[in-house]
Simulated assay, not measured.
Amino acid sequence: YSTFPIREQSEKGDWNFFLLPVYFIAILDFEYDENTTSKFRRDVCLKDQDGDIFFDKLNFKFLQMPLFNKQENELMTHFDKWLYFLKNLESFNHIPVILNEPIFQKGFEIAEISHLNVEQYEQYKKSLVQYLEVKNVFDTAFEEGEKSGIEKGIEKGIEKGIEKVAKALKEQNIAIEIIAESTGLSYEAIKITPIFCAIQEILDRVF
């Protein structure tokens, strides 16, 4: 695995063999050195027979996750937060306050999507495409200045489209955080979206 990013940096023709540093990070769910002094983190580099560093741009980092036991109130650094996130991700029912940052929200979103079955994932992609198509219509149709009746109609249609996308995502048990990120709706709006859409569909049929 470490050689892949090295190989990908090679260039055809004349090349000065300049390489960007490569870091191999192994996140282990077991202890590989149980018979020695346990170290949660081990930084390894290549050295020659005299102990001199052979190549300073190839680094290996091993993290033995069973040895990381910090609790939420003990997290002091961003590194601590990442380790806590990785170790406890499967047990989280919601985003902890201490991890309520954009980078971790993105991580939760990726984790939620990765756990969808094939049918749910296809529905998610379909709903996301529908939302993006509707948003594109709005972006291209809207012009600065006072909105005309057509523009207002387009905007109203877009709002309904977004609400239907949110409803479809919620029916697939997608986390509210992900729906909010995808549609731009507030948490409160997402929570009432199914009711609103049901009422709106009835009104559409009546009128």
Rank of each mutant, 00 (worst) to 15 (best):
T140A: 13
I179K: 04
H115V: 09
E31C: 08
F142P: 04
F207P: 07
D80Y: 02
H115L: 15
E159F: 12
G161L: 08
E74V: 04
S38Q: 11
D50S: 12
L58Q: 08
K81C: 06
H78K: 14
I162W: 02
I110Q: 11
G149H: 13
F17W: 01
I179V: 08
S10T: 06
I110H: 07
P102D: 01
A141I: 00
F85D: 01
F196S: 15
K61I: 01
S148A: 01
L185F: 07
K106G: 07
V129Y: 11
G149V: 15
I6H: 01
K191F: 07
N93H: 10
S10D: 07
S10W: 03
F196Q: 12
Q9M: 03
C45D: 08
E163Q: 15
I179N: 00
L99Q: 02
N100W: 06
N136H: 15
V137E: 15
D14F: 07
A26S: 12
E143V: 15
H78C: 09
F40A: 01
E101Y: 03
L83P: 05
E171L: 10
A166W: 01
R41G: 03
L116N: 07
F18V: 12
S127G: 10
G149R: 13
I25N: 06
R42D: 08
Y131H: 14
I192V: 14
Q172M: 14
L132D: 13
I178K: 09
F108T: 07
L185N: 03
E177P: 05
L28D: 13
F92P: 08
K125Y: 11
P66Y: 03
P102E: 00
